[in-house]
């Protein structure tokens, strides 16, 4: 079942075209990786999917509903690229606050909070103010907030930046478990190629265009290379060549 459909989305700020005919979709129970260099437009795509930004052309459909739709926001767990947390509140208070936004019962709140806190291994720091957290701890708390309402679709913008390899591994294990056992759909953006390997489907983006899509294995086969880095370089080069001809 298709959970996310991005249809021919273009976006310009003034004369600057940031996205150009972006098209991809995600099936239920899939991890889809958006990969591309800095400034290629990944965050812009995610904001458009969340309904926080308006596409100049094209449209987005999530869970059979046209974006923007207020009802969708309960179904999407969102983690922004920069941590958006209340610094003068404790981690626990942050989680309670966001849980209240989803109108959860007290009991449900407690259950979900202890689950997500355990997942991101923040038990020891949860009663401390966020202002005292390290970068990685903030990242983990942001991830916990994204999971708080147990949404079927997760949209995570660079979730593992600043997180140490061990914890990064355990987070990816958990994402994979969520996908397999709970049939969650997960969209992640990343720069890291070994994370890209763990995705079911990749959408490679360069200068606001989708240069190629497919599973990591299929992409490597198609371009007859052994690493995703090479795929990226090769596909990017072709797209460039193609662009300059047309």
């Amino acid at each position: 079942m298709s959970v996310l459909h991005v249809n021919n989305v273009s976006k310009s700020y003034g004369k600057h075209q940031i996205l150009c005919n972006v098209q991809f979709s995600a099936q239920q129970g899939q991890i889809v990786g958006l990969i591309g260099p800095s400034g290629s437009g990944k965050t812009t795509i995610i904001k458009i999917v969340m309904g926080m930004d308006h596409p100049s052309a094209g449209n987005v459909e999530v869970l059979q509903k046209q974006v923007p739709d207020l009802r969708l926001l309960k179904q999407i767990g969102y983690m922004a690229q920069s941590d958006a947390l209340y610094q003068d509140l404790t981690g626990y208070e942050n989680l309670t606050f966001f849980a209240s936004m989803f109108l959860m019962s007290k009991k449900e709140q407690q259950e979900r909070i202890s689950y997500v806190v355990n997942l991101v291994q923040l038990e020891s720091a949860i009663k401390k103010r966020v202002a005292t957290y390290s970068g990685g701890m903030k990242r983990r708390l942001s991830l916990a907030v994204a999971l708080i309402q147990n949404p079927p679709l997760l949209i995570l913008d660079e979730p593992t930046v600043g997180i140490d390899p061990e914890l990064r591994k355990s987070i990816w294990q958990e994402l994979t478990r969520l996908k397999n056992e709970e049939q969650k759909t997960i969209i992640v953006t990343t720069h890291v190629m070994d994370e890209a390997e763990k995705c079911d489907d990749l959408v490679m983006i360069r200068e606001g265009r989708v240069i190629t899509t497919g599973s990591p294995q299929k992409l490597k086969d198609d371009y007859q290379v052994t690493t995703l880095e090479e795929v990226f370089l090769k596909a990017g080069g072709e797209a460039h060549a193609h662009q300059s001809i047309s």
């Binding site: 947390l85 936004m101 989803f102 907030v145």
Partner: peptide, 14 residues
């Protein structure tokens, strides 16, 4: 500025 408003608006709050 801290982005929490945007984050807040990604929840179903009106």
């Amino acid at each position: 500025m801290t982005g929490t408003l945007e984050r807040l608006l990604s929840t179903p709050i009106r």
